[in-house]
């Protein structure tokens, strides 16, 4: 594994993907260094979700290479599971396991995948529940929590696997406005600790303060990539300008 300073955690080279005849990702190139925080934005249907889902192989790409922490993603199932256990992912609609309590949701993967003893896994889980500020909800079921609480549990669940990379796919889009901040605060905390993060979001305030780079996608391509200040103040492309106008105008 490549531990050198600034070494690439994720390397995406000339990646193409099709859904049937539909060319959803076109010639994607992106390198993410350790500790980098990348925000991906773009209109709906532009391929943002598909791109980050390729990184933990929830979707398979058909051309090009994706190398995560030194391991290339191929059809090798063992390698896929190994990469997935190091790459956390948080979804728009939480996807907590509804038949398990909050604590059981957090303990499950460390126990099953890392073979961690239950007591140790619970201790780690309680620690992360404290960090997302809901330790008192440990024995409730997901259905008994608010959306913001559920999403924080989902983040804690990923963190329990001690991932090297976290992927966030529009994690605040399904939340009521007053709950957006509590989730963003958790993500800002993670960024401060040096987590490598890829965040698909339209929260431009978050992008401005947290991202090292902002990427704009349209029609399956990366159209523009820049550090946040330049990205927002001097967008180079017509389409980026239109998009920013639309989402910043309200």
């Amino acid at each position: 594994m490549n531990e050198a300073q600034g070494a690439a955690m994720i390397e995406i080279r000339d990646v193409h993907k099709w859904f049937g005849d539909f060319h959803v990702l076109k010639n994607i190139n992106l390198t993410v260094a350790k500790g980098e925080r990348i925000v991906i934005c773009g209109p709906s249907g532009s391929g943002k979700s598909t791109l980050i889902r390729c990184i933990n192989r929830l979707e398979a790409h058909q051309q090009g290479n994706i190398i995560v922490d030194g391991i290339e993603l191929t059809d090798n199932l063992k390698q896929i599971d190994a990469i997935r256990s190091e790459v956390g992912m948080v979804f728009q609609d939480f996807n907590l396991f509804p038949h398990l309590t909050v604590l059981e949701n957090l303990v499950l993967a460390p126990h099953l995948v890392r073979r961690m003893p239950r007591a140790e896994a619970e201790e780690i889980a309680m620690n992360y529940l404290g960090r997302v500020r809901i330790p008192d909800q440990a024995n409730k079921y997901p259905g008994q929590l608010s959306g913001g609480q559920q999403q924080r549990v989902a983040i804690a669940r990923s963190l329990c696997m001690s991932p090297k990379i976290m992927l966030f796919d529009e994690v605040t889009s399904a939340l009521d406005p007053e709950m957006v901040k509590e989730v963003l605060d958790v993500m800002i905390g993670l960024a401060d600790e040096g987590m490598t993060m890829l965040v698909v979001t339209h929260e431009m305030g978050f992008a401005r303060t947290v991202a090292n780079r902002v990427i704009f996608m349209d029609l399956g391509q990366i159209i523009e990539e820049n550090e946040p200040r330049a990205f927002f103040e001097a967008p180079q492309h017509e389409r980026t300008r239109n998009f920013l106008e639309q989402i910043l105008s309200h």
């Binding site: 929830l58 199932l77 599971d81 790459v87 996807n95 396991f97």
Partner: peptide, 17 residues
């Protein structure tokens, strides 16, 4: 829902588990 499979997979949990 598909999200349940995806959440489990994204945690590195294999098919049978």
């Amino acid at each position: 829902p598909r999200g349940q499979y995806e959440a489990a997979k994204s945690l590195g949990i294999g098919y049978w588990k």
